[in-house]
């Protein structure tokens, strides 16, 4: 077993590639034809790890041109099922091919008894789950021979049996395993609204030196709760949180997620580039404020991992 300090050091040495976009199949042709000036791309590992067709073919070309980060949705780090070695092997094979800057996934579980709900389900936050998860992170990092970066998911419930705040849980994970953190600013906002915590306090409590990446995204306000839909522009409150997080972390790789009602590439890229004006301590937040749209019939869309668009 590799010493956790080794992984912690590796996390500290990870680069900041700048502002990135999630790679979506809708934009494959545009990117290959125009080589847009995007600093890096994040790819959903599961969309490519089994592909012997166009998705993998496109990724190989893209990885030759841009830095790439592999972001997963099926590691299921919190599950009580045994680790899926077949999945991990394919993840490792893809990483060997793509040479990503890092590999990330979520603090969640996706199912038990070999079933997969394809959702990022909330983890009960207590000593038992912390020990369980850290043990699995150690095994996975040794298997992959690299540190793994974990993202705070959007959550829609908390458990009575939880005894540890999420920000502390994430801190303990980094301390016990040397793993890195992916701070999804929008998820903090969504979870804070849904579960009655202050997102600013959450961000202040995190171990900022362990954060190697941030996510920003749009969400949908449903009145009494918020759904993480990734289907629209980033709201001003999330930009404010991003501004705080940028100051606290000293600036890390930042990525805009957009997974439903995906716009044309130029619009997607333009939304990402707004991040530049929210990096400054003197940023103002008076412009572009919009009233929330309430809609009950929405589905959380953690990431774009739908089935292949075969005729696209």
């Amino acid at each position: 077993m590799v010493n956790k300090q080794t992984y912690a050091e590796a996390v500290k040495n990870l680069p900041n590639p700048g502002l990135g976009l999630g790679l979506r199949s809708k934009h494959f042709n545009h990117i290959l034809e125009h080589n847009p000036a995007v600093d890096w791309f994040e790819v959903i590992s599961e969309n490519f790890m089994d592909s012997g067709g166009r998705p993998r073919h496109v990724l190989r070309q893209l990885a030759d041109r841009y830095p790439v980060v592999m972001h997963g949705v099926s590691l299921s780090i919190g599950s009580t099922d045994p680790l899926n070695i077949e999945y991990l092997s394919k993840l490792r094979t893809l990483a060997e091919e793509v040479n990503p800057l890092w590999i990330s996934d979520h603090l969640c579980w996706t199912g038990v008894n070999s079933l997969n709900t394809h959702d990022l389900l909330p983890v009960v936050l207590n000593d038992e789950s912390l020990k369980h998860i850290c043990n699995r992170i150690n095994q996975i990092q040794d298997f992959l021979q690299r540190p793994v970066v974990f993202e705070n998911p959007s959550t829609y419930l908390t458990f009575k049996q939880s005894t540890i705040n999420e920000w502390d849980f994430l801190r303990y994970m980094t301390e016990e395993t040397g793993c890195g953190l992916l701070l999804d600013v929008n998820n903090v906002y969504v979870s804070g609204f849904n579960n009655d915590f202050d997102p600013v306090h959450y961000i202040h409590q995190l171990p900022h030196d362990r954060i190697v990446q941030m996510h920003i995204a749009g969400h949908q306000h449903c009145g009494n709760y918020i759904i993480d839909t990734h289907d629209r522009k980033v709201v001003q409150d999330v930009w404010k949180l991003f501004n705080s997080a940028w100051q606290l972390t000293g600036g890390v790789a930042t990525l805009l997620e957009w997974d439903s009602q995906i716009p044309e590439f130029e619009e997607y890229h333009a939304e990402l580039l707004k991040a530049k004006k929210y990096m400054n301590t003197l940023s103002t937040f008076k412009d572009e404020e919009t009233a929330p749209l309430y809609n009950e019939a929405v589905v959380s869309n953690p990431v774009d991992f739908l089935v292949s668009d075969i005729m696209g």
Binding site: T117, H118, D119, L121, Y156, L157, T158, F159, K160, N194, N195, D196, N224, Y225, I227, V299, S300, N301
Partner: peptide
């Protein structure tokens, strides 16, 4: 499951239940 200021515990769980089948 905890309830919150705005939602009952059942309603919190319902968000996951509805999303599962819809997705």
């Amino acid at each position: 499951v905890n309830s919150s200021k705005r939602l009952s515990a059942v309603r919190h769980l319902d968000i996951y239940r509805q999303s599962y089948i819809a997705r």
